[in-house]
Amino acid sequence: MNTLTEERTSAQGRGRFRSAARRTPGRPSIVCGAALLLALAGAAVLGPLLWPYDHVAQDRTAMLVPPGGEHWLGTSRLGEDLLAQCLQGLRKSLVIGLLVAVLSTTLSAAVGLAAGYLGRWVDRCLMWGVDMLLILPPFLVAAVLSPLLRERSWLYMVLVLALFQWMLTARVVRARTVALRQREFVTAAHHMGAPTLWIMRRHLLPHLVPLLVIDCTLHVGAAILGEAGLSYFGFGIQPPDVSLGTLVATGSGSALTYPWAFLAPVGFLVVTVSAVGLLGEGLRRALEEGRGGSNED
C-alpha cells in the first residue's frame, strides 16, 4: 500500500506537464489533429495571397463551373472562385474560433478560480450567474440580439459566442480549485502571507493549465460550429464578409443541383472541426494518463 502511494506521489511530483509532454508527440490523434490544423491555418493565411482569384471577384465568363481546371473547386452562381471563398471563410472562422476560445477560457478560469478559492457569497453569486446562463438557450439569444449586432462589427458576435461557452469549464475549474484549496501547500502559502491573487497565480493556476489548454482547444471547434450555425441563418457574419457558415448558407440553395458550391465549404468545416476535436481529445487522454488515473487535482 505504502509502496504504491509513494510511487504515485513521486510520479506526480515529476510534473504532469513533462510526463504528458513526453507522451504527446507519440499520440496519433494529436499528431494528425495538429498537422491538419496547421495545414488549414497555413492555407487560410497564405492561400488568399497565393491563389490568383479574389474571393469577391466575379468572373462573368465562368459561372457555376464544376471543380477542376482553372478553378480547383469550381465557381459559384455569381462566378466567384470557390476555393478563394472557402479560404477566406476559413480564415474568418478560425479567427473567430480562436478569439472565442481564448476569451471564454479566460473567463472560465477567472470565474472558476474566484468562486472556488474565495467561496462564500462570491461563490454563490458567481455560480448563480453560471446557472442562469446555462438555462438561456444561446442560439435564441444570439438570434434575438442579431438585429442589434448586424450593423456592428463581427467582433460583437465573438463576444456573444464567448458569453455562452465558458460556463461548463468554469464549473470544472471551480471544483478543481475547491479541491486544491484544501491541499496543504495552499494553506502554507496563505500562512506565508501571500495575497489572494498571488496564490491564484502561483499555486492554483499552474495546476489548472492542462485542463484549460484542453478546454480551450475544444472551445475552438465549438465556436466555429456556433458561428457557422448563426451565419447560416443569417444572424452572424454579414456580407460582403464571408465565413464558412455564410458559404454553406449560400451553397445550400444549390446543394442538389450544383453540389460543389455546397460541398466545398461543408468539407472545410467538417475537416477543421474534426482536426480541432482530434487534437483536444488527444491532449485530454495524454493528460489523464499523465495523472496515472488518480483523482488528485
Binding site: T9, F17, R183, E184, R202
Partner: peptide, 17 residues
C-alpha cells in the same frame, strides 16, 4: 514573517510544480 510554520507532511505542503 517573524513567525513561520512547518507542516507535518512535506509532500503535501510543498507545491509539486
Amino acid at each position: 514573517r517573524r513567525m513561520q510554520l512547518v507542516f507535518q507532511d512535506p509532500s503535501s505542503s510543498l507545491d509539486p510544480l
